[in-house]
Amino acid sequence: MSGPAIHVERLVFAYPDGRQALYGVDFTVERGERVALLGPNGAGKTTLVLHLNGILGSVAGGSGSGRIEIGGTGLHRDHLRVIRRKVGLVFQDPDDQLFMPTVRDDVAFGPANLGLRGAELDDRVREALVQVGMQDHADLAPHHLSYGQRRRVAVATVLAMRPEVLVLDEPSSNLDPASRRELADILTGLDVTLLMITHDLPYALQLCERSLLMDGGRIVADGRTRDLLGDAELMSAHRLELPYGFDPLSVPGPEGR
């Protein structure tokens, strides 16, 4: 196995209703890196990550062009199964991700599609639920869980597939402070390459050493999270604002660990 975890080249894409979302995206993420994907609403962040496992884009029959490699494997129609096992995608709204009648069914969905059955499947489900601390809620229906719990189960559904790359779309949105911290603890403890879309800049600084800044369907900046957040001119040019009183230069980041 060779090559970077994620490699994207000249990626272009338009939605079927005519909206063009990506105007040529290039970036590379090495194995084990934790990268935040920042940018204003409508920058094309979600569209970009949906390309990473071939859900959108020319592979899926969409209108677009460009090249994507995951762990050295080119994204091609014939490799979709492999790619989708390698790239775990956690959607922004946990209700999109939890579609089965119970938590257990839902976490089992991915590994079952990989061919796991019986005791092996049960073990995998339990392991993933333990990782997010939800093992006691396996038999509940998703609509009986709190929002924070649903977000954690959503992460578990993807962890159960043992991905090499974990991609999260705004993992901290709509979480109360305690749930937000608990999720950060879970994510910090995982041994995977991480790409995380977020508007929560302190969260990006806490979890990710490197950040990509996206605007207008292109990557406009790529560097250390602390440097990007400290660049007031760059930040305001792309409608990014730090929370009141937050100084990115004075708080500890992931570099210290």
Partner: peptide, 9 residues
Amino acid sequence: PDLILVDAD
């Protein structure tokens, strides 16, 4: 109607 696509260049 058809779509108009603008590429990287």
